[in-house]
Design a protein around this nucleic acid. Structure first.
Lengths: 244, 244
DNA sequence: CGTTTAATTGAAAGCAGTCAAACTATGTGG
DNA sequence: CCACATAGTTTGACTGCTTTCAATTAAACG
């Protein structure tokens, strides 16, 4: 018996917005699951396929992605450790997007039926799952705004702020910055830009002293400055009182 | 007692994806609500405010919208009659976006607490509400793709196809087209474009014979052509077997 | 080390934005 | 019913942000 259930992360995440009773908590931990370690870029779900399981990201990063008919890619959301990846498809018969790991990642695979049953029987868990979905929707709306109405520099700064705050909320980022394990092409796919322009924009932010880069590591020396350039306000993350 | 409850539309919408028992159905119809007729551009919810009620759109159009710090607007979703507008905020304490009527519209205002209680007590209704949220998320993802990775012509064509299919699914559009009561500026705000460019793009589509316009009325003479230009596939709408 | 992938840089082209003005509805008050 | 005011549409000229295409440099990997 593991000292810490692999699903403890999920249970903690779910209880972040809703108080779960100890019974509820235990029921989450008792979900059947398989642990897998996946290579970068592994597909967890493919558009058009029926979702059969719910993957919970235990470590690493993952993202949702869609392709146009011409093959252009848009990353529509990013995910850090602790997040359930398939709540979005839990009640839909056909996946409308792809989910891929960004890095090597550990996931817990929970059978779809087990999770649905848990949600069906425990209103508090259902409540928590709903909130999780709603927060993701909120982030999705902000991404739409970001891509639709901000220029490249603000768009990139905004994303860097968002990731900083989300990682910080999970205790995964410190004052020395964080690792953002995305290629510039992937950043472009997340921002609706080309890799070339991401490169130029990164350098602009860097030479303005707004970020310090070292490979994929990012440090934000003056949060307020980057926040202003990125027009970032963390409210849409619904994390609770945090930063500014 | 009204021959048809104003909430019948909502009940029908909810039962579109999940079988509701007659008890569930009746419980939805029995929700307390106030009917209001609202002028165009009336705010139903403001960013930063606590959501106190759940508005159900009985007739007309509405949209969600966010603003950048510089005042640029992005419409992040469109809504047609029959949709519940505040499920997105039902469990969040502070609104992260604005909701406005697009046209004159009738809404039923349901107290937030009543809806939450209904969902708490009726798993099938909770299930249906969750699906409604998930479908909206799916649409949001497609919008992100549309804005991030398609050029103006495809973007506009895609939106016109989406609205056509959504209205058709509600029986609100016929073979003679439909009224899209948006100004070109609003179309721009929905597509991440300027009004000027929307105008030029509309004329491009028009002169290519892909759409026929008369004021705000749109007819699509050759669905397949516009669909191809807009790279449109309706799967993300999760409406069920429909069109192509 | 050689190979592959990612990052970087330059030059040129293009899509969409900006600014401004004219035109067309729509609506109002006289 | 007309004159005027307002909101929305249309058009033109110009600018510019971002893309595209290509080539070079740097890093990661076996």
């Amino acid at each position: 018996m593991p000292e810490t259930s692999p699903l403890a992360l999920l249970a903690r995440k779910l209880s972040g917005h809703v108080a779960l009773s100890s019974d509820d908590f235990a029921a989450v931990l008792a979900l059947p699951c398989q642990i897998r370690t996946l290579d970068p870029s592994t597909y967890l779900l493919r558009e058009g396929d029926p979702p059969l399981q719910c993957a919970v990201l235990l470590s690493g990063f993952a993202y949702r992605q869609k392709l146009t008919g011409e093959g252009a890619r848009q990353i529509v959301s990013l995910h850090v450790a602790g997040e359930a990846l398939d709540l979005q498809s839990l009640y839909l018969d056909v996946a409308d997007h792809n989910i891929q790991t960004l890095t090597r990642a550990e996931v817990a695979l929970v059978p779809r039926a087990a999770l649905r049953e848990l949600i069906q029987q425990r209103p508090a868990v259902a409540h928590a799952a709903m909130i999780s979905v709603l927060v993701e929707s909120s982030i999705s709306r902000e991404w739409t705004l970001n891509i639709g109405r901000r220029d490249a520099q603000a768009r990139l700064a905004h994303l860097l702020c968002e990731v900083a705050m989300r990682l910080d909320a999970q205790g995964l980022a410190g004052p020395d910055g964080y690792d953002l394990p995305m290629t510039q092409e992937q950043l472009g796919d997340a921002l609706g830009l080309t890799a070339v322009h991401v490169n130029r924009t990164l350098k602009t932010l860097e030479s303005a002293g707004l970020i310090v880069r070292n490979r994929r590591h990012v440090r934000i020396p003056a949060w307020n400055l980057l926040r202003d350039v990125g027009d970032f306000t963390g409210r849409y993350l619904h994390i609770g009182p945090q930063h500014a």
